[in-house]
Nucleic acid binder design. Sequence first.
DNA 1: GTGAAAGCGCTAACAC
DNA 2: GTGTTAGCGCTTTCAC
Lengths: 330, 330
Amino acid sequence: MRDVAQHAGVSISTVSHVVNNSRAVSSEARSRVLAAMKALGYKPNALAQNLRRQQTFSIGMIVPDSANPFFAEVARGIEDTSFEQNHSVILCNTDGDVDKQAAHTDLLIKNQVAGILFVAAGISTELVEDLQARQVPLVVVDREVPDVAVDTVLTNHRQGGCQATQHLIDLGHRRIACVSGGSDLSPSAERLTGYQMKLQESGIPFDETLVVKGDFQYASGYRAARQLLSLAEPPTAVFACNDLMAVGVISAATEMGLRVPEELSVVGFDDVRLASFTNPPLTTIAQPKYDIGVIATKMLLARARNLAAPPRVEQLETELIIRGSTAPLS
Amino acid sequence: MRDVAQHAGVSISTVSHVVNNSRAVSSEARSRVLAAMKALGYKPNALAQNLRRQQTFSIGMIVPDSANPFFAEVARGIEDTSFEQNHSVILCNTDGDVDKQAAHTDLLIKNQVAGILFVAAGISTELVEDLQARQVPLVVVDREVPDVAVDTVLTNHRQGGCQATQHLIDLGHRRIACVSGGSDLSPSAERLTGYQMKLQESGIPFDETLVVKGDFQYASGYRAARQLLSLAEPPTAVFACNDLMAVGVISAATEMGLRVPEELSVVGFDDVRLASFTNPPLTTIAQPKYDIGVIATKMLLARARNLAAPPRVEQLETELIIRGSTAPLS
DNA sequence: GTGAAAGCGCTAACAC
DNA sequence: GTGTTAGCGCTTTCAC
């Protein structure tokens, strides 16, 4: 900047004023400054700007695994929205490791980020309170933190569980299995609750041999299906709590000589891109992944503008996407 | 920091010295400072540190689409390695838009990043030269920039094309189609070249009706397959230049009543996770996606340490992964 | 072993 | 409409 001022023959503050349009500058001086800037390829040092202004334009995004297609889609929503609002996003993967999460959070704070997005993170009540005490804007995505008021964006997982199950019931199925996720996570538990609710509503007795626990990975869906289909009285339909497990179910069924959907209906959850490409294409419950990212980012930036506003919780709806993996009970 | 100094009853520079271990401090003063830091929850302001030290610990990562499973995997390699080396990564999606890329690059420079990773970016010779003149460390990934010496990490796409084609030839196929990508991109062209080389080597005449151009999306593979399989003399095998298109090929074939691999062999490229889950699982050419990210990051950080070192080009190998979508010609 | 002081590049308040 | 100045929070010489 000093260089530009010298080159243009004006004071350093004049340069600053034309850069920031912060006040009137004679058109002659302005054009000289502009010329000097161009000649020197000047770009203001954002570090200095931010230090002085006591604000930054970057936000931290903490996710378990940005390569997981679900989070990848959420992350795109976040990055696109941040870009629109002139913010950069700092990518942090935790792999579910609390220490890694803490290390990332620490670094983000030191870098004075404008806010932090915790996506499906193992975030504790204490951490939230600590950050709030530090005046760090944050929003938590896809998790509920007990005993503390904090901006949150959630999907209505229970509704999704209901839709999946109701769809199968509507097709005439009564023996409906469920491959659940880790039961300690609220989204997973909610999906299962939706399943149970709809069963009950339709007067179908709950049979616990028909729910088997998975871990959201392909292999666990495969394993669960082999187990379920070996039952004396096997299910005619299965609701898998995510798409990856659903694909595992289809593979196992196919391998055991069952045709999908004619002999076994399968519905997944999430509607990742992969779901359209399986054979048959997967009927599933769509979460508004991209929108989750968009909304969370907007919420964070709003929070950064007003730390005192009352916390908000936004709940998004799921949608049943009917493709080729479900059919009427024959 | 001022607060900490006051609270500990020492000078501000003493605090700095204990924080940075930059020189001997009496153990008594040290423990007083430590206590004060803990009591006040002090975290040094990285903005100020970086401004003063004239260096930062963030790197910019520019990718077309971080939700694309291929780039997502590369990005994980980048983020993991950066984290190991105490660097943060700023995520920038361009969607192939040159203006967006320019905007991101500009912002990264203003933020004084330690370096920039251009992944599969439409990066011009001029841009590289401009950045080099600015002393900005950079490495370009998965693209070749003509007429300029710059750190680069590439996959041997031609080798991959050879492996895919040779595999099909080994299985007895002679009528082998190819669904290519956009021909203007060097990786895509190289894969096609590998295909042609192996055909020629085996004395199979090149038939241009057997190569149809796609765009790396599922739909284009689907379309290409419908076209190819409607030929008077349809192929018995197809090499699709990425996995998504390969899956499209399989869908089209299945829909037209052909069984894969018995009646049509299909091989893809990339080995994205999806490839293991298709029905049948996809035979494909694996790129070391994660390693690409790891190596590129190490290269960038090395460059940041020594701007003057001669540019390096690292070429990584592909690997044929045989799964269920290819079979001997019957 | 400790403190004072200058300055990284910038902005904003304050003169003129 | 323009220039001078103080200072953001930190590091690093320099003096003691």
